[in-house]
Design a protein around this nucleic acid. Structure first.
Length: 306
DNA sequence: GCATGTCAAGTTGTG
DNA sequence: CACAACTTGACATGC
């Protein structure tokens, strides 16, 4: 069985998360700012409940929670503590309800902190900012019962080997909550499955396999080989493998195939995945609509009931 | 109202 | 050397 995952937002269904930018938040006096942030966070916690209900009704088995569910939480100026929000008890209560709901309905939750989160950066400040953001997302992961907080290795700084060594040293110093949630993913510029596998294997970090990134940034591994290595790491840890898929916006021949298309082209779906049990985040701009489409295409082309 | 420009953060590659 | 690409809609602003 393939468990499909939706990333952060919806295309057609009425689930809308709210935002605020730092400049606008900073304009407000402290008390007013916290009230405003609190109301956004509370609304977002209700929207997250709605998101899970919607996902459940569409028979989608996984959902990626947006990083900015509590907007600006770790911002150097506009940042705040959850306890400082007037609605904190209700927010925490909503997160607990979300936890109960997804556990009952077997919906897998994850986070994907964005490109600024780089544990292996040689710049101590970048590392500290990254750690602060990871601690925040892992806190929300604990409150909602989310499983994975998935990041990339980041830059190479002239040597992938040295950078991976730095990652290893930093990883061992991380708070337990961060280590428990953290997963790594191959990227489309620098780090391949081949680069990351030895590290992940050694430290028991699950490796999320993104086949689109693998095609943009290939290594010596074939798709079936990368599938087997990454899948094996997850299964060794008693967890269901977690993969990503997307199709290029223009085409594979275009000068930049990296941007994501609205839908998944069925030709991009690896055949070696057909008989596997795993979770597949569908990174397509048409969101839930792309999942529905992919499910239909798999049924039609391969007779797979996904 | 509606169109437009902006958004915290890092790194790489291109012009 | 500066800047776009990663991704992306919601919001504030200005007409």
């Amino acid at each position: 069985m393939i468990r499909f995952g939706l990333c952060c937002i919806f295309h057609d269904h009425p689930v809308k998360f709210r935002h605020i930018n730092a400049a606008n938040a900073a304009k407000l006096p402290e008390a007013e700012r916290l009230c405003k942030l609190s109301s956004i966070c509370l609304d977002n916690s209700f929207e997250l409940e709605k998101a899970l209900l919607t996902v459940e009704s569409l028979e989608i088995g996984a959902f990626r929670i947006l990083s900015q569910i509590l907007p600006l939480y770790t911002h150097p100026q506009a940042g705040y503590k959850l306890e400082a929000l007037p609605d904190a008890p209700e927010i925490v209560n909503n997160f607990a309800k979300i936890r109960e709901f997804h556990e009952e309905h077997d919906i897998r939750l994850s986070f994907h902190p964005d490109q600024f989160i780089i544990l292996a950066s040689p710049d101590e400040q970048v590392f500290e900012n990254s750690l602060r953001e990871l601690e925040y997302q892992c806190m929300v992961a604990d409150l909602t019962g989310a499983e994975n907080v998935n990041i990339h290795m980041g830059g190479t700084y002239g040597s992938k080997a040295d950078t991976i060594k730095r990652f290893e040293a930093r990883f061992s110093e991380l708070p337990e909550s961060v280590r428990r949630h953290l997963t790594l993913e191959n990227d489309d510029i620098s780090y391949t499955v081949e680069d990351l596998y030895p590290l992940c294997s050694k430290l028991d970090i699950p490796l999320v396999y993104d086949v689109h990134h693998h095609r943009c940034n290939p290594d010596s591994l074939s798709i079936p080989q990368a599938t087997e290595l990454c899948g094996g790491l997850w299964r060794k840890l008693g967890r269901e493998p977690y993969f990503h898929i997307s199709s290029p916006k223009a085409s594979w021949q275009a000068k930049n195939p990296r941007p994501h298309a609205d839908y998944i082209d069925i030709k991009d779906f690896p055949e070696c995945w057909l008989c596997m049990n795993f979770t597949l985040d569908v990174e397509a701009k048409a969101k839930e609509s792309a999942i529905i489409q992919l499910r239909e295409d798999l049924q039609q082309k391969f007779g797979i009931k996904a």
